[in-house]
Design a protein around this nucleic acid. Sequence first.
DNA 1: TTCCCCAAGTTGCATATGCAACACCATTTT
DNA 2: AAAATGGTGTTGCATATGCAACTTGGGGAA
Lengths: 217, 217
Amino acid sequence: MEFFDNFLFEGIEESQCCEMMKCFGAREAEFQKGEIVYDFSRNSNSVGIVKSGSVQVIRDDINGNRVILERVEEKNLFGDALVFSLSIDSILVVAEERCQILFIDYSQITKRCSKACLHHTRLVENMFRLISGKVLALSERVEVLSAKTIRDKLLCYFNILSAREKKRTFDIPFSLKTLSEYLCVDRSAMMRELGNMKREGIIKMNRRSVEMLNFVV
Amino acid sequence: MEFFDNFLFEGIEESQCCEMMKCFGAREAEFQKGEIVYDFSRNSNSVGIVKSGSVQVIRDDINGNRVILERVEEKNLFGDALVFSLSIDSILVVAEERCQILFIDYSQITKRCSKACLHHTRLVENMFRLISGKVLALSERVEVLSAKTIRDKLLCYFNILSAREKKRTFDIPFSLKTLSEYLCVDRSAMMRELGNMKREGIIKMNRRSVEMLNFVV
DNA sequence: TTCCCCAAGTTGCATATGCAACACCATTTT
DNA sequence: AAAATGGTGTTGCATATGCAACTTGGGGAA
């Protein structure tokens, strides 16, 4: 069963987890690829833990445009920021592949039960940590997207990776195609700019491994 | 003293607030314009409530680039997402003008004390609501910035405003200059594009008031 | 092996956009 | 009243970028 093997329950012992799950009235379900896991426009009082597989959180706006807000993978949580939102658009959670989801009523998380106070505290902390991580990832992304030129976007993102590794050499964590999507620029234009930067001696680069040669003033 | 007049303590009675503040060991301080209110690279165990005035949350990266991550105004909270971060960059909170700040040790918020359990629950909920709001605002901004052309950025943002008002007419909540900064595009280029859109009959617009004429497919 | 698919890398072209410089108007300051 | 300030609106120009159309190379399936 392993309720405990996820980031929300990290640091809480298995025995306590099981007890808390009963206390929470948690329910588990399995979904096939493409199935709707949860519809936040209908009800928004649960968070979901992805025990296996992955899901997409999708916004359909009034014009029918579909935007992927988030991909949520194994051990992670969805809905943590949505249970409080009073959104107009319909927000759906859709299975990206076959997946097992554990639903917990969010009020059970903030509420305290009589027996498990210590663990509730840890649970709340974990929840904060998860949402905080999202805030940081998003503000990082805004920072990168704020740069006007492709070169500045690349340098901004490379600086973040470089700082994260504390080294001037690092690997890009996804394919160059995906990188161009993350930066919201045309892939070929990005390749061209990377070529320029190599030629000008700003970076060395082979496939996904990058070395920064100059500090950027 | 009015500890309670802010979004973190919303829904908690004044008398309870005062009691909780003692229990929290909250401390209050005043800062002048430009002073450093808090340095998250030195310590990161407090959140701050802006009781009056406003502050900026600033990131200085390794190259000395300064980016404004957030403006925090009266009644709002800063540090809610930062207490958990293990950032490399130095993150500073600086007074934008003369301001009064109330500092609370974050562990006091998640922890439960013996007397004020019910109010702790409400406090935790408020905290979640505040962070969730940030997640939503940020993902909205990412969505807007994701659009490649200036026209698409404008339409994306206008659609959000239009949906928020549930009307095809609405006002832009800040100056056109600030709008161009929000969209991260050149102001004159944005003006030019707005002109094109008016001429093509996509929008009507006068100063900050906008009417959407067509659904965008 | 051969075939197929996808990421990586390149190039030409049309145009969207940043930049600079300007005029206009309303408000505030001196 | 005159001057300074700041938002709004416009235009010319150079170029960065999106788009389309390629080639190349590696890894997996038949």
